[in-house]
Structures are given as C-alpha cells and as structure tokens.
Amino acid sequence: MSDHVTPPFGKFPTVRPALDLRDELVGPVAEALGRWDAPEAAGSVLYVETDPEKADTAVFCETYDAPLEYSANCVVVAAKRGGETTLAACVVLATTRLDVNQAVRKHLGARKASFAPMDAAVEETGMEYGGITPVGLPAGWPLLIDEQVAAAPHVLIGSGRRRGKLILPGAALAALPGAEVVPGLAVAVVESTATAEPTAVEA
C-alpha cells in the first residue's frame, strides 16, 4: 500500500486506492468494492481525504483545485407508476442538470418522476446525505449514467459520506452492476448555475 498515489487531477492531502481502505469506508461502499466482478475497475477507484464541511460540489472544487467538468453528482429520484414508487440513482456531471421530467421519467416508464426525499435516500442507501455514491447502491436499483460521465477519463463522486470522495474512470462507473448509459440524461447549464438541484443528492 502506498500513501503517495498521484490523482489524475486536484490537490488532496491524502490519496489512496479505495480497496486498501475498505475498513474505513461506509459499509455498502466497502462491500460493493470487495464483491465487484470487474477487478480492474474496482482497483482503479481512488479515495481522497477531504473536509466534510466542504463536501458540496462547487466549494469542493474550489478548495481542492478539482475541475468542475470532472465532478459528478449522484441524484436519487423517485419514479411513480400505478401506485408504486421505484427509487433510482442517476449520475450526471456537475456542469449539467438532470432531466428528471423527460429523460428520467420516460426511461423508467414512470407516470411521474421527482427528486427523492432526503430521509428516504439516506435510509435506503445507508449513506450520508451529500455523499451518496453510485458505488454500493441497493440491489435492484436502476442506475442511470449520462453518456458524458461514461466518456470522461476520470470523474469525482461521493464516497458514501460527506468526508472524502472517490475518483475513478467514467468507464468504470459504466461497468457497475446494473448500470445503464443513457444519452441525453442531462442537459447543459451555464457555469454560474452549474450546481445540483436543491433537492439533489450531491456526489
């Protein structure tokens, strides 16, 4: 194990392979890394130690010199159809806005789709709000990944808690169990408003 891993971007006090730190990660994330059936993808995941008070995307990027265009948000949505509600996770770049009403709703075949309540997202994932990540989501959840995320050489996402983040190739995210790459999942926003929706779960 090495304490001197060089991240693909950003300036962080500590950078380590996530597989080396499973005992320190949130349970669902640690379990997912350990059982991932794509060893190369799991081995590509880095954990960077960060201040939990600076976990929100825009503040984080400024503090750690991380490019906003390589930062991704994991948004939990609730899709309703025929009296049933399905929770799903969507991963989009921080420079974009998740198209919940059109792209997400239509892809999930739902009558209505909206951002999931914070309490429900936290309880169902076993992760902290503001740090929910696509690595370690509940089995059976749809995981939709915007094509821009999948095409990125590396992206920054949550670690399951507000302290720390994960960095991994976009292709590795697309290799997560059950993941679907969806073209047009997000729409571009101007830089001054390139933050997650108020009710979104930020990575």
Score class of each variant (00 low, 15 high):
residue 134 P to E: 03
residue 122 V to Y: 01
residue 110 A to M: 05
residue 111 R to M: 08
residue 129 Y to S: 10
residue 121 A to Y: 04
residue 123 E to W: 01
residue 133 T to K: 02
residue 115 F to A: 00
residue 124 E to T: 13
residue 111 R to Q: 13
residue 136 G to A: 10
residue 130 G to C: 01
residue 135 V to M: 04
residue 114 S to T: 13
residue 122 V to I: 14
residue 122 V to Q: 11
residue 113 A to C: 15
residue 111 R to H: 09
residue 120 A to P: 01
residue 137 L to H: 08
residue 119 D to E: 15
residue 134 P to M: 07
residue 118 M to G: 04
residue 109 G to A: 08
residue 116 A to T: 11
residue 121 A to G: 12
residue 116 A to F: 09
residue 123 E to Q: 14
residue 110 A to N: 09
residue 124 E to D: 15
residue 132 I to P: 09
residue 120 A to F: 00
residue 111 R to W: 01
residue 112 K to S: 13
residue 108 L to A: 06
residue 129 Y to A: 10
residue 127 M to I: 14
residue 120 A to K: 12
residue 112 K to D: 06
residue 115 F to R: 01
residue 124 E to S: 13
residue 109 G to H: 12
residue 137 L to W: 11
residue 117 P to I: 11
residue 130 G to D: 03
residue 134 P to V: 08
residue 132 I to L: 09
residue 125 T to Q: 08
residue 127 M to H: 09
residue 109 G to M: 05
residue 112 K to A: 08
residue 110 A to I: 07
residue 134 P to W: 04
residue 137 L to F: 09
residue 108 L to K: 11
residue 115 F to V: 01
residue 112 K to N: 05
residue 118 M to R: 15
residue 123 E to S: 15
residue 109 G to C: 09
residue 138 P to A: 12
residue 135 V to A: 02
residue 128 E to H: 09
residue 126 G to A: 00
residue 137 L to G: 02
residue 133 T to I: 00
residue 109 G to S: 04
residue 136 G to M: 00
residue 109 G to R: 11
residue 130 G to E: 04
residue 119 D to C: 01
residue 113 A to D: 07
residue 120 A to G: 00
residue 116 A to K: 07
residue 133 T to S: 13
residue 124 E to F: 01
residue 124 E to C: 01
residue 133 T to Q: 03
residue 136 G to K: 08
residue 138 P to E: 13
residue 115 F to Q: 04
residue 136 G to N: 00
residue 109 G to L: 02
residue 131 G to N: 04
residue 130 G to R: 07
residue 109 G to T: 10
residue 113 A to S: 13
residue 123 E to N: 11
residue 133 T to L: 02
residue 137 L to E: 07
residue 109 G to Q: 05
residue 111 R to I: 04
residue 119 D to A: 15
residue 124 E to N: 05
residue 110 A to Y: 07
residue 136 G to V: 11
residue 114 S to N: 10
residue 127 M to P: 04
residue 128 E to F: 02
residue 121 A to M: 03
residue 116 A to Q: 02
residue 132 I to A: 02
residue 135 V to W: 07
residue 113 A to H: 12
residue 117 P to E: 03
residue 135 V to P: 00
residue 128 E to Q: 15
residue 116 A to H: 06
residue 136 G to R: 08
residue 116 A to C: 12
residue 134 P to G: 01
residue 125 T to A: 05
residue 115 F to D: 07
residue 108 L to E: 10
residue 119 D to W: 07
residue 121 A to S: 14
residue 134 P to I: 06
residue 114 S to I: 06
residue 129 Y to W: 12
residue 108 L to Y: 10
residue 129 Y to N: 07
residue 137 L to I: 15
residue 116 A to I: 12
residue 117 P to Q: 06
residue 130 G to L: 00
residue 115 F to C: 05
residue 136 G to E: 03
residue 114 S to A: 15
residue 127 M to A: 06
residue 127 M to V: 13
residue 128 E to L: 04
residue 126 G to Y: 03
residue 131 G to Q: 02
residue 123 E to R: 14
residue 134 P to H: 11
residue 113 A to V: 14
residue 111 R to S: 14
residue 109 G to F: 06
